[in-house]
Nucleic acid binder design. Structure first.
Length: 615
RNA sequence: GCCCUCGUAGCUCAAUGGACAGAGCAGCAGCCUUCUAAGCUGUUGGUUGGGAGUUCGAUUCUCUCCGGGGGCGCCA
């Protein structure tokens, strides 16, 4: 992984850094100092830019060898830094060098650095920050809701995390494949079909989302009928058991390929998939490959035979048991860690794990995936640990590059969401509410937005708020969903970042109207601290892309986008652009604003948030 | 019993070996005849759950204890 300094050097100060490194080594060799590896880092913001290294390790080495003065390590480090500073003297392109608290700080020529960063952003445009093309193919699997329910806010977290990760990985330079895996099979699915067939056959609300929400109600109703109650009368018990028998019978018929039940399944399944496709469209998500649980079923059974033959799995069906894999035993572990996994039921039907094995095989063999990322909630950690270990035992070398991006649940203040009980917050409800709230703010604040643009911009801002609120928490943490927090437009939010883009655009638009054109120019004047901080933030973008992609952490980009927007808002407030008298300064600042707008736009794009020109 | 995960300001969260632990919200004090105030500036607030260890240096790594959440052979 590249460090901040690597990136800065890649674009800008490679030569200077190498030269200084050589001088440090020379000095230490000449004076018999046990120099530790030189690790460069950025200087914490001080109004100038540069890179730094510390001499603590070197000082500690010296102390262990009993050399030099007996001063404490920090003091010794400072002494060495001071001596090195003197030895290096002056370097072309470097404004000055300081020895501070055991660190050697090397500062760049400010005007030079500013020009290099702004030129780099404007020359690259939409591609500013894009990583060099890499040879590996990465597949990101996300958006795996069950069909026959409706899409709730928890599914939204999953989908947004997956999509943003895919965008990051792609922009970092990997060939990227987006995969969805809807669960269109199982008892939950059958339960809805049973209730629908029994009570609602022939009915169907108009509207894709209404229909999805209607199915969720049917599911909750069915669950209530099938649930054992306290103090049931004998009649009630008999009724419930009769219902249960009907449901089981429908499941059996589905399995046997009964024409009526399959037709029922096709129709209702398509209703859900239509809603899913509609929501993915709203979120600007374009899935490349659709896997369906129902299609993984058959191939998965065949795999188990191979695993049994190769002595990886053990068939206990003769004695009434299932087919199992004793993972810990195969790995020679004495403590239980991966445990024993069941890979085929006694009756020969497949399980969740069975299907995931078949799916992985297809990903590796048909799609030539080198790295495989699964965006699935944290409750399935053991499942994936088992799946990856089995793939390893099976001989897939890609198993080592399978990664479970586990994330916490979205819960409500009153507790967990439950589709069974119908106590969920639907994505569509929040989406509608978001737009409503933005429209009411627009009515008050954005009188100059044309009526026909309002709805579109409200959608962009509303979604921006929601998406950012789901991305700005590290994935391993649960989110207690509070709609007022999720749809806040103040402070550390999506709209705050979008507003930076709008403000930059507003200046450029005015400049254009006044006849100004962007011209290549230098930064020879005395930069304000706000300009320096803004340029500093922009220069970090390429490195943040790589970090977020390599660590599989959308949060890194979410945090960065806020810091960047924050730097722009401070700049906007403190530094005049169009009001500047000096033409050279005005040109330089206009270029800076254009570069900032571009960087904000690129960051927002990676976060799956739209960048409006006005709001 | 075993495994995973979390514990940081009143609240919601950042920071994974380095310079005074940072933001937002809430609170307090200011800033709109000036490129959009969905904004900016200042300020209050911390024994990073407790203890021990490794290290020149620990919110970060190790051990232990306390507290919350999750998981553990035929649900997905």
């Amino acid at each position: 992984m590249l460090s901040v300094v690597d990136i800065i050097q890649t674009i800008m100060f490679q030569k200077e850094q190498q030269l200084i490194e050589e001088k440090i080594k020379e000095y230490c060799a000449a004076n018999d100092i046990a120099l530790a590896d030189l690790k460069w880092q950025p200087i914490p913001f001080s109004g100038e830019w540069g890179f730094a290294t510390s001499f603590f390790q070197t000082a500690a080495n010296e102390a262990k060898l009993g050399k030099g003065t007996k001063a404490p390590v920090p003091q010794k480090a400072q002494e060495i830094a001071g001596q090195v500073k003197v030895k290096i003297g002056s370097v072309a392109g470097i404004s000055h060098i300081e020895a501070v608290k055991g660190y050697l700080n090397v500062y760049f020529e400010t005007s030079d650095y500013a020009r290099r960063v702004v030129d780099e952003v404007l020359n690259s445009g939409m591609d500013f920050g894009r990583g060099a093309a890499k040879t590996e193919t990465v597949m990101v699997e996300y958006a795996q809701p069950n069909t026959h329910h409706s899409f709730h806010i928890g599914h939204a977290r999953n989908t947004i995390l997956g999509e943003v990760l895919a965008r990051l990985v792609e922009f970092a330079g990997y060939k990227t494949i987006r995969a969805s895996y809807p669960g269109d099979l199982g008892l939950g699915v059958i339960t809805v079909m049973w209730m629908y067939d029994k009570l609602y056959k022939g009915q169907e609300p108009a509207g894709v989302h209404e229909r999805g929400q209607w199915m969720l109600k049917i599911y909750a109703e069915a669950t209530a009928l099938l649930e054992k109650k306290e103090n049931e009368t004998p009649e009630q018990t008999a009724q419930r058991e009769a219902y249960e028998a009907e449901r089981r019978e429908m499941y059996r018929k589905w399995d046997a390929g009964d024409e009526y039940v399959r037709e029922l399944w096709d129709v209702t399944r398509e209703w859900s998939l239509e809603e899913l496709r509609e929501i993915l469209h709203m979120l600007d998500v374009k899935i490349d490959v659709w896997f369906y649980e129902s299609e993984a079923d058959e191939p998965s059974k065949a795999i188990i035979h191979e695993l049994i033959e190769r002595n990886i799995a053990e068939d206990e069906r003769a004695t009434g048991g299932p087919v199992i894999i004793k993972i810990d035993e195969k790995l020679g572990l004495t403590k239980e860690k991966y445990r024993t996994a069941v890979v085929l039921r006694n009756d020969g039907t497949s399980l969740y794990l069975t299907k995931d094995l078949a799916l992985a095989k297809e990903k590796f063999e048909k799609y030539h995936v080198d790295r495989s990322i699964y965006v699935v909630d944290f409750r399935q950690s053991l499942h994936f640990q088992q799946a990856f270990k089995i793939l390893e035992l099976w001989g897939f070398k890609q198993a080592g590059k399978c990664y479970h991006l586990s994330y916490g649940y979205v819960t409500l203040p009153e507790g967990a969401m439950s589709s069974r009980r119908g106590t969920v917050v639907l994505f569509k409800e929040v989406y509608d509410e978001a737009i409503k709230r933005v429209l009411s703010v627009e009515a008050e604040k954005s009188v100059d937005i044309p009526a026909k643009e309002r709805q579109k911009i409200a959608t962009q801002i509303g979604l921006g708020a929601l998406v950012y609120s789901l991305l700005s928490v590290d994935n391993n943490k649960d989110i207690v969903f509070d709609i007022n927090e999720a749809l806040s437009f103040d402070g550390r939010t999506g709209p705050y970042i979008q507003n930076a883009h709008v403000r930059a655009n507003s200046i450029l638009k005015k400049a254009g109207a006044a006849g100004y054109e962007l011209q290549v120019t230098g930064y020879e004047y005395e930069l304000t601290k706000q300009e320096i901080e803004l340029i500093e933030q922009m220069s970090q973008f390429p490195q943040k892309v790589q970090q977020a992609a390599e660590e599989y952490r959308p949060l890194v980009m979410a945090t960065y986008a806020y810091d960047l927007a924050n730097a722009f808002h401070s700049f906007y407030h403190a530094v005049p652009v169009l009001q500047t008298e000096n033409e050279n300064v005005k040109n330089a600042r206009l270029r800076l604003v254009a570069a900032a707008k571009q960087t904000v736009a690129n960051a927002l794009r990676l976060l799956d948030i739209q960048a409006p020109d006005m709001m």
